[in-house]
Nucleic acid binder design. Structure first.
Lengths: 183, 183
DNA sequence: ATTCCCATGTAATTAGTTACATGATTCG
DNA sequence: CGAATCATGTAACTAATTACATGGGAAT
């Protein structure tokens, strides 16, 4: 149940409306934690009940009014407490891996196509991360301390995409030569 | 909703009881798809209704009777159809990454401890995979075609653990020198 | 004596997804 | 004129987790 904490982290960085949060969960923090706007509104309401956040109505002209959510003292306490908790290993659920494992019961060419797609997705995500890195973290040795977390997570993203990409290439290579040796 | 398909893959490899499946989902296939026994029994019942699997009661002495589940022709059709489907990118949910990103709002030492733990987990999982690889896939070039899927998935696991391990080491290194330069 | 293995479930709850709903404004 | 952006939600459903339940046999 860590969507709460992902929201706390995001609001601790900067107050936001539910809508803003939904967009953040499509980009920055969303690269390692996905959430829909429906889920965000639901959880925000619960968090307001727990006094972890408070809403301030912002009246706007020309566009709908919005609620700006800010983290409270209690929210900060909870966030701090949570960082001292052990993080359980995430439950892996890779449909892609299941499909590769089960390829011998299915359509081999379709699975190979799927691997090529996955490879391309890794490539473009890697490019995106590398651009982000070049833009925002060109000199990681002289980084202000408060940016360390964001930098390190981005490093993890880069490594993960690189590895995913290399894995796909290895698979395509292997399956390609296996196909050739069949002839 | 791919637990169904993970079960189909597992049963296509070899028939099993719900209990057997639960143990497989703790080991081999469970390395990339986690499921509890409760969830497995529930889904098996649904799959029996859909005629993807059929149960045969096996009476035993000295231990409880069990139901042996086998994949049906319809189950094999569904499995084949599923391999031709596009695989949506998995929704990332890394509580660990959220915690690293939010470390500046919490207890830095506790987070660093958490990274060390994670590093150790990656190390032991990597060792486990490498042992598996040495034992079962010592000569990947001359592998029977039906083992290709299992081999490639294991390669992915090895790469993922290696990368996770290196990421943790990079973070510890970075945070360590950042701590030193604070003095 | 206690705990682990075998074996299969139900019940209650929480988390997440998908579909539906509304309505003004701005951009092409 | 249609689509996208801003903004907030409800309702129905599916998937998954946690807790509870049973009971014999084997091992420590």
């Amino acid at each position: 149940m860590a969507l709460e904490h992902a929201i706390l982290v995001s609001l601790a960085e900067k107050s936001a409306s539910g809508y803003d949060l939904a967009r953040r969960f499509d980009k920055s923090i969303g690269h390692f934690w996905k959430a829909s706007h429906q889920q965000i509104y639901k959880v925000l309401a619960r968090m307001e009940g727990e006094k972890w956040v408070e809403a301030h109505l912002v009246e706007q002209t020309g566009r709908p009014d919005k609620k700006d959510y800010a983290i409270t003292g209690e929210g900060r306490d909870e966030l701090r407490r949570w960082t001292t908790e052990a993080t359980p290993p995430e439950a892996l659920r890779s449909e892609f891996a299941v499909k590769v494992r089960g390829m011998r019961f299915g359509d081999r060419d379709a699975v190979v196509d799927g691997i090529r797609n996955r490879r391309d997705e890794h490539r473009s995500k890697l490019d995106y991360y590398l651009a982000d890195s070049a833009k925002n973290f060109s000199e990681p040795t002289s980084l202000p301390a408060e940016l360390a977390g964001a930098y390190l997570v981005l490093r993890g993203g880069i490594r993960a995409e690189q590895t995913g990409l290399e894995w796909c290439e290895e698979m395509l290579n292997y399956l390609d030569s296996a196909a050739r040796s069949d002839r």
